[in-house]
Design a protein around this nucleic acid. Structure first.
Lengths: 262, 262
DNA sequence: AATTAAATTTCGCCT
DNA sequence: AGGCGAAGTTTAATT
């Protein structure tokens, strides 16, 4: 039973053997690696052509396909996973791997005329992935410790829907003024300032109370501070990493409190 | 001379041999593939942790690093290529591959406790990559055949700088009214409408002539047509693929004319 | 070096 | 199923 092994390796196989190995790998929901000389054509949302050269083709268990050149973070051609239909067939001295999906309608065609390596693998992987210091972490940190924004700030709601979209955090300051907070996890450009301005306008149209707008980010682009000033908005420096640490500290403290109470 | 071969394959190597093969692969600017059980930690712009599991590690000739799980288009961890410093070392029964760069300061740490496969390859690849049906193609198509936008349209300039950014195409219609064109290669959302509105405002502030705004795209989002109507703007359906074909046709025609003249 | 906008963006969340 | 926004977005172009 060739398909039951967790790893198959073919070094410089002939076209026929490569065809079989790749087909079985895809059918068996394995991860398939192919190294060889190929031409690649894509037709779908756009259209592309890649002239012959040596690349690495990866087909994953969910049907996703990647063609990688020898440099670059991004694949030169690809197909995201999902409902992808594969067709693998030897044609004389070439091997064609075609990936096709319906929505959006697109096709990637990889044509090998030389194959150096075919590997198929069954990867056993249930390890959890955790990411810290996202924009959501910053939001949660402010909600848990509002003083991170400013002393006396009290959150009322978050992800509140207003005219064009959602306000990240919404609350009031120590003087009872409404505060609209826009959070960015990295240096904020003028688009962020404009976004906040639009939210502010929407909120001001609904209340007679004074409304402040605060852009929270680890930094600002060149003219952003001036743009904010012109629009009557404010800026508060806040580092996403520090927010993540704050969250950890709060969680730890909560745990300590819990243990103490027990 | 082990480093001079164009492909090395190690199946289930011990830690020491894997260390050597990976180090030499990186030093030799080869593409290195490693399949094995690993834990991955990232610290930099954010922070992440990936618990142990079987994955594929790819290190490319330019120093870029990818860690791929068995599913998904995107790598779970990565490092873009450039000035990346690598450290590969065996520690008892584990193998650590660390990638580090200065700007931005970040580190990816891949720790293997089991290695199924190590492959290093020298990929010979000079094949040209061509992409059609980009937004730029749409712009060029309109400039070459202005009737694609509307009968009688005459372009004056493109990528013209106005207040907040650049107008894609700028011209006048058969009645002498100014026309500002905003191009989107895919379904246009309300952001596109807003963008066009801002450009229109900027242009109107500079002239007494009537100014029309046309959003060009292969489709529109839900409320975009109504938003455009409210703002006094127009929509013109145009398919990026058709634009690309138009370009090809024009080029072919130009060539035919040239041959005829000769 | 900083900024801006596009991308076959992908991905997740929510209506 | 479509709309919306975030992403360790990356990448290329322009100042």
């Amino acid at each position: 039973m060739p398909g039951s092994k967790s790893m198959n390796v073919l070094v410089r196989p002939n076209i026929r053997d490569a065809e079989t190995a790749i087909s079985e790998g895809i059918l068996g929901k394995m991860v398939v690696l192919v190294a060889g000389r190929c031409r690649v054509q894509y037709v779908g949302r756009a259209k592309s052509n890649l002239e012959p050269g040596e690349r690495i083709l990866i087909i994953k268990a969910d049907g996703s396909l990647l063609v990688h050149r020898s440099v670059g973070y991004e694949p030169v051609n690809w197909m995201p996973g999902g409902d992808v239909f594969y067709n693998v067939q030897a044609k004389e001295q070439t091997l064609q791997v075609r990936a096709q999906r319906k929505k959006p309608a697109e096709t990637v065609n990889v044509m090998f005329d030389e194959i150096q390596l075919v590997v198929s693998l069954l990867l056993s992987d249930v390890g959890e992935f955790s990411l810290y210091a996202s924009e959501e972490d910053m939001q949660r940190a402010i909600l848990l410790k509002p003083d991170l924004l400013e002393e006396g700030f009290r959150p009322i709601s978050y992800e509140k829907k207003v005219a064009p979209g959602f306000v990240d955090v919404y609350g009031e300051d120590k003087d009872g003024k409404f505060v609209v907070v826009e959070i960015k996890r990295k240096t904020a450009g003028k688009e962020a300032a404009m976004q906040l301005a639009r939210y502010i306008e929407a909120v001001r149209g609904r209340t007679n109370r004074e409304v402040r707008g605060i852009l929270v980010a680890p930094g600002t682009g060149k003219d952003v501070l001036r743009t904010l000033a012109v629009l009557g908005l404010e800026y508060k420096h806040l580092d996403p990493r520090r927010c993540a640490e704050t969250l950890t500290r709060v969680r730890t403290k909560k745990l300590a409190d819990f243990l103490e109470e027990s």
